[in-house]
Amino acid sequence: MDLLQNPTTQLLETALSSSMTRQNTISQNIANADTPNYKAKKTVFSHELNRAQEGQLKALKTDRRHLEFGGKPSDDSAAVVTRNNTMFNHNGNNVDIDHEMSELAKNQIYYNTLIDRLNGRFNSVRTVLGQGR
Rank of each mutant, 00 (worst) to 15 (best):
R133P: 15
R133Q: 11
T35P: 07
H66D: 14
V95T: 03
N89S: 14
A15G: 03
R121V: 06
E13V: 12
S77C: 07
N94S: 05
M87G: 08
Q131P: 06
Q10S: 06
K61C: 06
A79S: 15
F88W: 12
N84L: 09
F88T: 10
T35W: 01
T21A: 13
S18R: 12
R126S: 06
A31D: 02
G92W: 09
I26Y: 08
S124R: 12
L4R: 10
R117C: 01
K58R: 13
L3N: 02
N84H: 02
N6K: 01
S124K: 04
G120E: 06
P73M: 02
I97E: 05
I97H: 08
T86E: 13
K58P: 08
N37I: 10
G92V: 00
R64C: 07
A79N: 00
D63R: 12
S27M: 09
E100I: 04
S46A: 14
D34M: 02
S74R: 02
A52I: 03
K106G: 02
Q23C: 09
V128Y: 04
R51D: 15
E103C: 03
N29R: 07
S46C: 09
N84A: 11
E68Q: 09
G132H: 11
L57V: 10
R117G: 09
D34V: 03
V128C: 04
P36F: 03
L60G: 09
A15T: 00
L4G: 05
K72F: 11
R117F: 11
A40H: 03
F122Q: 08
N89R: 13
R117A: 05
A33R: 06
G70F: 04
E100M: 03
D34N: 11
T43H: 07
N89L: 14
S27Y: 06
T14L: 06
T82P: 00
T43L: 05
Y111I: 04
S19K: 06
H90Q: 14
D34I: 01
K42G: 00
K61I: 03
M101S: 07
F69K: 07
L49Y: 00
T8S: 15
T86R: 07
T35F: 05
N123A: 10
D98P: 05
T113Y: 00
N94W: 01
R126C: 07
I109C: 10
T25S: 08
L57K: 06
R64P: 13
M1L: 10
H66S: 14
E54R: 10
T82V: 04
Q5F: 08
N6R: 10
F122L: 14
A52T: 11
A33H: 02
A31W: 07
Q131N: 14
Q10V: 02
P7I: 11
L60D: 12
D98L: 10
R133T: 01
